[in-house]
Design a protein around this nucleic acid. Sequence first.
DNA 1: ATGAATAGTTATACTTTTGTAACCATTACG
DNA 2: CGTAATGGTTACAAAAGTATAACTATTCAT
Lengths: 148, 148
Amino acid sequence: MTQVNIDLIAENLITIHPLLFKSISRPLRHQSSITPGGMFVMGYLKHYGTLSMSDIGKCLSMAKPHITVIVDKLIEEGYVERQSDPADRRIVNILLTEKGLADFETIKQVVSENLKSKLLLLNEDELEILSLATEQVKGILISILSKE
Amino acid sequence: MTQVNIDLIAENLITIHPLLFKSISRPLRHQSSITPGGMFVMGYLKHYGTLSMSDIGKCLSMAKPHITVIVDKLIEEGYVERQSDPADRRIVNILLTEKGLADFETIKQVVSENLKSKLLLLNEDELEILSLATEQVKGILISILSKE
DNA sequence: ATGAATAGTTATACTTTTGTAACCATTACG
DNA sequence: CGTAATGGTTACAAAAGTATAACTATTCAT
């Protein structure tokens, strides 16, 4: 019975994934210069404040060389900066710049516009349900999927 | 106040997106021969039964040439087939083969294993909440995001 | 009937993502 | 100390996704 729930949840998440891909990653490409990968990295930096290159890789299950590429591009645009860790000089910590934080919020707003234009089709009850439901999904998924 | 809800929902969805990307698209690459794009297409075919090339493009907001590439690859693997529309001979309808349907379900199961191993960390109450919440998010997002 | 519009493919170029191996610097451990 | 392990970068190759233009075939509309 728990098993049934888990299968159902997995199935639901697999169905939700392409809907978000279409409604978030796609508008991102059209309305900003930032790549989905860069956006993901900035989202984690916003949440955690500072992350090492390896930490970012673990968050997104991406290989370290790919993280280097993404971070290089973000630095080029002035969105993040490298800081060497005084305690362990092998480690490079990444953090958002002020510009990065500001532009991240702006880009989120722009992408939100697409979503919001669709959400306006819903009635008050549906919005209420979706508001609570997305909050719950977000909270629980973060707790089990965000690290490692 | 409705405005507040909508912004919150958009923000939540933007946060959920990379979590699903990591937990679904990534394992897909490692544990199957199918690409995320191909998986998305098969998911829509499973849901709608039959779709024209243009319909698929609208579902995923992808350009038609890209759909051609994806479908060519799916045909190569025997997962889908083309059928010319008798009513309008310009239209090419795509549908899952038996093998495509079977393998799609298998791949979903495999990808689910990753998710499920994480979901097992949750207690009964959280599973109950997540089950209902994902069901609601899925239903509402399909209603407003799937077509066009 | 002819021109415009639609559906799809082909071709091409480019960006992003993915994967692997080799390499340097630093730290950890015997 | 010397060797292994870790963190990160570089270099390279290949796959996937993105975008646009040109083209064929078919249908639509006047």
